[in-house]
């Protein structure tokens, strides 16, 4: 796992990295694909929909902050298992997770998305965008669902999702990185491993480009989440302060 090794990786080096990342993804994906099979779960019933919509904005934000925090914790574990991540300096580990953990949650969401009903696994059910109405962020929610839909239309395998998640996380253009070059090198190796995997899976040549184009979309979603959070906090500072998970505040608080 020496991330400063020679710049020319052999195919077997890339396969080794690929295996490590795919294994890490599977060990930390929160729900297995089989568990998320939409046929195993009900969609939110009308009575439940009403209950979600009747929740106050504060209550619904709190529910979602808890769910996001749970999902982020699995992403932290994912990062820790990627060869090379724990060899980065601690400042950079934190910078990468602060900037990228929610992006990976959004990428992973395509696994839990049912395109037939435009719904996503949430709180033990498959829920459409209307379930989140009381958050008061319809535009953001609808963009998150659109993103899940377009990601899921790529029909990526678990391995492809794992490598793409690692690629998203190891972005060398984040502000405040101390060892940009090391992160850049790691990301280049991940990209090469992803490219190698896509070739092996006989995917169209355009798939990698399509995936890389998604990076700016997912970044946009995360910055809009930050804007919505700061608007919400301006209205309900006490709710955020006393009822939101500490990790959520640490990641998105400033």
């Amino acid at each position: 796992s020496d991330i400063d090794s020679s710049p020319t990786d052999t195919t077997s080096d890339l396969e080794h990295l690929s295996e490590n990342i795919c294994k890490s993804h599977m060990e930390t994906c929160q729900y297995l694909r089989e568990e998320l099979e939409p046929s195993k779960w009900q969609t939110v019933l009308n009575t439940e929909l009403e209950a979600y919509q009747k929740k106050s904005q504060e209550e619904m934000w709190q529910v979602c902050a808890v769910k996001v925090t749970e999902a982020v914790q699995y992403v932290v574990e994912f990062a820790k298992r990627i060869d090379g991540f724990m060899e980065l300096c601690q400042n950079d580990q934190i910078v990468l997770l602060k900037a990228g953990s929610l992006e990976v949650v959004f990428v992973r969401m395509c696994r839990a998305y049912d395109s037939q009903n435009n719904s996503v696994y949430f709180d033990g059910k498959y829920a459409g965008p209307e379930v989140f109405r009381s958050l008061g962020c319809d535009d953001l929610i609808s963009s998150v669902f659109d993103f899940a839909k377009s990601m899921s239309s790529l029909q990526l395998t678990e391995d492809e999702i794992g490598l793409f998640s690692a690629y998203v996380l190891m972005s060398s253009d984040r502000s405040w990185l101390q060892e940009k070059n090391r992160v850049e090198k790691l990301q280049q190796r991940i990209q090469a491993a992803l490219q190698n995997l896509l070739q092996k899976n006989q995917r169209d040549k355009g798939v990698l480009t399509k995936m890389i184009c998604k990076v700016s979309t997912v970044r946009g979603l995360c910055s809009r989440h930050m804007e919505k959070l700061s608007a919400f906090r301006a209205l309900h500072p006490d709710t955020v302060h006393s009822r939101f998970p500490p990790l959520y505040k640490e990641l998105f608080g400033s």
Binding site: E27, T28, Q30, E70, Q73, Y74, V76, E77, K80, M86, Q90, Q93, I94, L97, K98, P246, L247, E250, L251
Partner: peptide, 20 residues
Amino acid sequence: KEKHKILHRLLQNSTSPVDL
């Protein structure tokens, strides 16, 4: 460090998703 104490702790712990 103080500002990111939970992240620090998560990075240092040998936690697994089962423990989360």
